[in-house]
């Protein structure tokens, strides 16, 4: 299938939306409510484009591409419509970007900037919801919610938890748990998928608060240290501090998903209870020691036991939490240096 976008011919296949063909062709069409892999809702209308022969602008996310379509994504009519939508969203949005956690990574902020929306043309009603920061992981500020409903859709369709839905109608529409309880008093499992999906500052990571701006952090891909699924994480790091953890979109196997432990269980590494120096027990209690002293003590004791009782009098268990290279190294120490196959780990228990 061939369609023409901004004068350029683009290839598409049956079943693709205008948005999909346009993005594959390198055209930037903004979205707020769009989620790949889920049924399009066409709720926010920010992705509108002009199609020759159609009277109204259409939402690119929910319009099937058809042979011979001629589309403009950047006409004044399109830009003006987008500007109007952003003005409406901004008219009831708290413009506290200076202190908002989401600044620099906020789709609404970026759109307002790109479209030249200042927020001064229309003054609308404002919401006055209390901010829920009653749990250690997710801050919910529905004063900033633009009702794109991505959070609801990932909770219901991706994670399959069904903890949140919309309540009320019109301006009073609000995302809420059953009976509008706190998350901890709902069926929420704190996977934080809603936070990852939120395009604005309505849902943010509590632990990240004040630790670093989006443009200050480097993104480091790594693997989750909990169960055996091997979820791919994107650590947002400032200096030596992990500011927050996101899932790698499209990374295998988790495809942008995490659970409560993977998303929020990372900061044990900063605990002040960490072991920081070798310890040697003397008269029943530990004292600090240098690496040389502790390593010499262990090596000498091993040598003594091997001489007296043979290498099979030494045994060790490796760690199923640590990296492959560490387990390799430990079994090599036992087999090649100590001379025993008494090496195991917790796979069996």
């Amino acid at each position: 299938m061939k369609i023409t976008i901004n004068g350029k011919s683009c290839e598409g296949v049956e079943g693709q939306t205008v948005l999909e063909v346009a993005r594959a062709g390198g055209f930037n069409i903004p979205t707020l409510c769009h989620l790949a892999d889920l049924t399009p809702t066409g709720a926010c209308r920010i992705c509108v484009v002009e199609v020759d022969g159609m009277r109204n602008l259409v939402a690119a996310c929910s319009t099937p591409a058809a042979e011979g379509m001629v589309i403009r994504t950047d006409s004044e009519r399109v830009l003006s419509a987008r500007r109007f939508i952003v003005e409406l969203l901004v008219s009831c949005h708290p413009l506290d970007c200076m202190t908002c956690e989401k600044t620099g990574d906020c789709t609404l902020q970026n759109l307002a900037y790109e479209l030249g929306v200042t927020g001064s043309r229309m003054e609308g009603d404002r919401y006055d919801y209390p901010v829920d920061s009653s749990n250690p992981f997710i801050v919910r500020d529905y004063n900033k919610c633009i009702l794109c409903l991505k959070c609801v859709r990932v909770c219901n369709e991706i994670q399959g938890i069904e903890a949140i839905k919309t309540t009320q109608r019109g301006f009073d529409t609000k995302v809420a748990t059953a009976y509008d309880n706190t998350l901890q008093d709902s069926t929420c499992v704190f996977c934080g998928q809603c936070v990852q999906a939120c395009p604005v500052g309505a849902l943010t990571e509590k632990k990240a608060k004040g630790l670093g701006r989006a443009w200050e952090t480097r993104k480091v891909r790594t693997t989750c240290p909990y169960c055996g699924v091997g979820c791919q994480q994107e650590l947002h790091v400032k200096g030596e501090q992990i500011v927050k953890v996101m899932a790698v979109e499209d990374g295998s196997p988790n495809k942008g998903r995490l659970c409560v432990k993977g998303r929020f269980g990372y900061d044990f590494i900063y605990s002040d209870e960490r072991l920081t120096t070798p310890l040697i027990k003397e008269n029943g209690s530990f004292r600090e020691a240098s690496w040389d002293e502790a390593l010499d003590l262990v090596a000498n004791k091993f040598k003594q036991i091997i001489a007296e009782s043979g290498p099979d009098a030494i045994a060790g268990v490796s760690c199923a939490r640590s990296i492959n290279e560490d387990s390799y190294q430990m079994q090599k120490l036992f087999r090649a240096v100590i001379g025993t196959n008494n090496i195991d780990h917790c796979a069996r228990t």
């Binding site: 693997t223 989750c224 240290p225 909990y226 169960c227 055996g228 091997g230 490796s318 760690c319 199923a320 939490r321 640590s322 990296i323 492959n324 387990s327 390799y328 079994q331 780990h345 917790c346 796979a347």
Partner: peptide
């Protein structure tokens, strides 16, 4: 566990 497979493989 995250690397129980790996500890076996190693």
């Amino acid at each position: 566990q995250n690397n129980v497979q790996g500890a076996c493989d190693m």
